[in-house]
Simulated assay, not measured.
Amino acid sequence: MTKADLYDEDILLWSERQADLLRHAADGMQGNQEAPDWPNIIEEIESVGRGELHAVKSLLVQSLVHDLKADAWPLSRELPH
């Protein structure tokens, strides 16, 4: 099974394998190890960053909506007092 196949078929196994390869590379142990799957590693790191940014934006919007509702309907029974 190629790196791309493993990435598409079992992301958990792929990520564990890539983490192991990166640990070995960080320790300076290349040996007979295969090279890390750099294109997909880069894609995953970028995806994590975008996901975190999306989560922060979503939480900020939710917070603003709650603040606007609290200001607009201060006596609403649904709002904690």
Rank of each mutant, 00 (worst) to 15 (best):
M29V: 09
Q18N: 14
L13C: 05
L12E: 07
E78I: 01
D37Y: 00
A26Q: 15
V61L: 12
L68M: 15
D8C: 04
G28M: 07
L60D: 02
S58R: 08
G51K: 07
S76R: 00
I42K: 13
K69F: 01
P36E: 04
L53C: 10
A35G: 02
A25K: 15
R17M: 10
L68S: 05
D37M: 01
D20H: 09
L60S: 06
G49M: 12
V56Q: 13
E43P: 05
P74D: 14
K69R: 12
M1R: 12
N32D: 13
A25R: 15
Q62F: 02
H54C: 06
E78L: 02
E52R: 08
A26F: 14
G28H: 07
A4K: 03
A35D: 08
P74R: 11
H81T: 02
P74C: 15
S47K: 08
W73R: 07
W38D: 09
L13N: 05
H24Q: 15
W14L: 01
P36C: 04
M29N: 13
H66R: 05
L53D: 10
S63P: 02
W14S: 00
E16M: 10
T2Y: 03
I45N: 10
L75V: 06
D67Q: 05
S58N: 07
D67F: 00
S76F: 00
H24M: 12
D5F: 04
V48T: 07
L21H: 10
D27K: 13
A70W: 00
K57F: 05
W73P: 00
Q30L: 14
A19D: 13
W73T: 05
H54S: 09
L22M: 14
D20T: 04
A26K: 15
S58F: 11
Q33V: 11
K57E: 07
G28P: 01
E46A: 06
E43Y: 09
S58A: 13
D5T: 07
S47V: 10
R17H: 07
K3Y: 02
W73N: 04
V65L: 03
W73Q: 08
G31K: 14
A72K: 01
L64V: 05
E78M: 01
W73H: 13
Q18T: 04
G28I: 06
S47E: 13
I45P: 03
A55P: 00
A26P: 04
D8T: 06
K57Y: 09
L53T: 11
S58T: 08
D71R: 12
P80A: 15
Q33C: 14
G51S: 14
L6D: 02
D67Y: 00
I41Q: 00
P39L: 15
L21W: 11
D67L: 01
L12D: 03
S63R: 10
I41T: 02
A55K: 08
D67I: 01
I45H: 05
P80R: 15
I45W: 05
H54L: 11
I11V: 06
G28E: 07
Y7G: 00
K57C: 08
H54A: 15
I11C: 01
M29C: 15
I11R: 04
D37W: 01
D20M: 07
A70S: 06
I45R: 09
W14Y: 03
G51F: 12
T2G: 05
L75H: 11
N32Y: 12
Y7P: 00
G51T: 15
